[in-house]
Design a protein around this nucleic acid. Sequence first.
DNA 1: CCAAACTGGTTTCATTTGTAACCATCGAAA
DNA 2: TTTCGATGGTTACAAATGAAACCAGTTTGG
Lengths: 145, 145
Amino acid sequence: MEPEILDLENFLPYRLYRLADAVSREFAGIYKDSHGLTRPEWRTLSGLGQHGTMTATALGEQSAMHKTKVSRAVAELERRRWLTRTPDENDRRVEHLTLTKAGLAAYAEMVPLAKAFERGLLAKLNAGERAAIAEGLAALERNLA
Amino acid sequence: MEPEILDLENFLPYRLYRLADAVSREFAGIYKDSHGLTRPEWRTLSGLGQHGTMTATALGEQSAMHKTKVSRAVAELERRRWLTRTPDENDRRVEHLTLTKAGLAAYAEMVPLAKAFERGLLAKLNAGERAAIAEGLAALERNLA
DNA sequence: CCAAACTGGTTTCATTTGTAACCATCGAAA
DNA sequence: TTTCGATGGTTACAAATGAAACCAGTTTGG
């Protein structure tokens, strides 16, 4: 009997992964080429820039990173003196992370580039396509969690 | 001056990556847990199952993998005796790869599971959302290449 | 012809990642 | 209290990855 065939190019998990990988790889230029950051480091910077002060656990939840990634990213950003740790008053396991001036400066520099990158991606689409992305992604995200 | 803020959860590259990562991680159960395959190995198997015979270069193009990934995946599948290499008649650099009986059997076993997985993903969406995914992904893919 | 540029594929090495074990601290329950 | 399970975070080790160097073999241009 003929084996059933899977058309990889039209297989949703593959398409998603390939698209994300390509976009992510291009986007990495913004934090990697200019500052030598890894993706976890960029996300950490981004999380702290957005929320001010966070714990490592909160960072992991917000940016979907395993705690080892967070731990290493935080260690590296601390080494660069882009963030500082403050022990929690009540729970000595917890550390509150905050960007330093230097960290904030790097963040402030990259945010406009990130936004421009996203605009560039969407600029090539028409309004209907942009709406489709929004709706489609939201729908998929909804039934993951 | 207040630094401009980037909302990571709504940032397209991040959303794409997170979604792809989550879907991909779940899907990996099908080839990893049952046969201990890596993603490149799965893609190689899938490419050969779909197209019959291919060269390593063609595999890399079809499934968006760097040639080192292809090389290693092919080596492992060969070690398992899931594929064989046949030297090209005219160009001695080229090898044609083909699945063995065992390779085909594994492929035939996994394809229905893969399709069921995809159906499961889409089953939770309504028709409009499915159409949105199709349109949105296609639009983004279009202006990558 | 022959050198240089190119192509298919492999290997090496450094970096990144994931898993699991681990340490310290905390909270609840006996 | 003491103990036991959960939790915040780090570390150790193995496996996966990417970049660049590499080795055939092939094509091109002089």
